[in-house]
Design a protein around this nucleic acid. Structure first.
Length: 487
DNA sequence: AAAAAAC
């Protein structure tokens, strides 16, 4: 065991104001994580920062503590409560995350005079407006609602000294960039900008640099790296077997709670309903729910009232929930970065965690993307679902055991096609999956090729076709190999 | 392919 970590820096030894130290001590923090140890002095020095560190390693404290310290140190009007301009702005990509970070900052600031507030959509404007009008030094927000408040003149941002983009790569992606740029246009040019995320693609890094002045780059471990405490598995499972796979892994591992990620809101609602019918205490979290429902779902999971939280990528980033033992990717995420964030919901703060990704043949390309991002080979594993494959079970209608999970819905033909029409669409979408063994290439399970380090490398000698398969072709074959009948 | 974020 690596129990003898050489003297981690301690909060008590930091040059932080007493009120901040007191709050930190009260929250039970003693030593700094690596990202905190590196980022805090740099932020205290007033520099711009681009910070990358693995999920679950305390990025929020890494920026908020030194930020609060700076605000305390250069307190201009603390003795006259009449005027409290927003001096620090923290922007986040989801409402739940804004809420979480705001609560954390409130905790850190609780023994100071600094005021903070949070604004995000889906909630009544009025209470937020009232808070803003009272004046706050630290404002936490999601972009859309903040723009609303700016345009309604509920808040003025021309005195902002610090802006933080948490989950910075997401904030800078195409979906958020226009709003972000508008917000930044209201801020003084002369300011400190802090960007933090667990993932930064090279393109986003370049873009991010255009928003920073002479930044300090802080990289704790490799960017895009997953926590070493998370045990990762990729199981080759056909779409129709995925729910059964979840039941089985939960049972075999003796797991009660888990996050289950899906790619669409509709799929999220449906999967949650199915799992609930199959006897698992399940709730769904996605952007088509009201904010009240979203908060309720999250709180029910936190309180242990439900065991499974089926969620879209609204829950992929940043959410810090204690003791999430496992994350399932029911769908392989469209963006490889989101894989890193999703599985980052487990194994936080040094805890151990399990990440299970269910891979169907059509996911080959996405798996190749994840391999590339993680810079390592992914071994697809077979999952013995105990008994005949599901499709066999459907043919011999007498087989009860394997079908038990589906039995509740099996008779409802109409609803099955609503679920995506597994039978027909699978034939359409997965022409690659061989029905009969034809090529010896398909007859052995996936083994990482010895030579090629990068997926984009040249075609190896094992290439069956004359022209040589492309990287996506090879990726599809790897996955297809695992779906060979009888293997 | 989708999700997120304002009403």
């Amino acid at each position: 065991m690596t129990q003898t970590v050489p003297e981690l820096p301690r909060y008590a030894d930091l040059n932080l104001a007493e009120p901040l130290k007191r709050a930190v001590a009260e929250m039970g923090y003693e030593t700094l994580t690596p990202i905190q140890a590196q980022a805090i002095p740099v932020v205290l020095a007033g520099r711009d920062v681009m910070g990358a560190a693995q999920t679950g390693t305390g990025k929020t404290a890494a920026f908020s503590l030194p930020l609060l310290q700076r605000l305390l140190k250069h307190e201009n009007a603390s003795t006259s409560p009449a005027r409290h301009p927003v001096r620090a702005l923290v922007l986040l990509p989801t409402r739940e995350l804004a809420d979480q970070v705001a609560q954390q900052i409130k905790q850190y600031a609780k023994y100071t005079q600094l005021r903070s507030a949070v604004v995000f959509g889906g909630m009544d404007m009025k209470p937020q407006t009232a808070e803003l009008k009272k004046g706050v030094e630290v404002l936490v927000a999601t972009p859309g609602r903040l723009l609303d408040h700016i345009e309604a003149k509920n808040v003025v941002l021309n005195q902002v000294e610090y802006v933080v983009l948490d989950e910075a790569d997401r904030m800078l992606d195409i979906g958020f960039l226009p709003d972000l740029q508008r917000i930044l246009s209201y801020l003084p040019k002369q300011r400190t900008t802090l960007l933090f995320s667990a993932t930064f693609s090279p393109e986003i890094k370049r873009l991010a640099n255009s928003y920073l002045q002479d930044p300090v780059l802080i990289e704790v471990a490799r960017p895009n790296e997953t926590a070493s405490t998370v045990e990762q598995h990729f199981y080759a499972v056909s779409d129709e077997d995925k729910r059964r796979a979840i039941h089985q892994v939960l049972q075999q591992r003796g797991l009660r709670q888990a996050f289950i990620f899906v790619n669409s809101k509709l799929g999220c609602a449906r999967l949650a309903r199915s799992l609930e019918r199959e006897g698992l205490k399940t709730t769904a979290l996605h952007g088509d729910k009201s904010q009240d429902e979203r908060l309720k779902a999250l709180n029910a999971f936190k309180a242990g009232e439900v065991d499974l939280l089926v969620a879209t990528d609204v829950a992929a980033r940043g959410l810090d929930i204690k003791d999430v033992p496992a994350v399932f990717n029911f769908d392989v995420p469209f963006n490889a970065e989101d894989y890193v964030h999703r599985i980052g919901r487990t194994g936080r703060a040094g805890a151990s965690g399990l990440a299970v990704t269910l891979v169907s043949p059509s996911d080959a390309r996405l798996i190749a993307d994840i391999e590339k991002l993680l810079k390592r080979k992914i071994e697809l594993e077979r999952l013995d679902l105990g008994g005949a494959p599901d499709r066999e079970a459907r043919r011999s209608s007498a087989d009860a055991p394997e079908r038990s999970l589906r039995s509740a819905r099996e008779p409802r033909q109409a609803e099955r096609s609503e679920d995506g029409g597994f039978e027909r669409s699978s034939a359409r979408r997965r022409p690659i999956a061989p029905r009969a063994p034809v090529d010896p290439f398909f007859s052995k399970p996936y083994e990482p090729p010895a030579a090629a380090a990068e997926p984009a490398a040249s075609a190896g000698p094992s290439a069956p076709a004359a022209a040589g398969p492309s990287a996506p072709q090879r990726a599809r074959r790897k996955v297809a190999a695992l779906f060979k009948p009888g293997g």
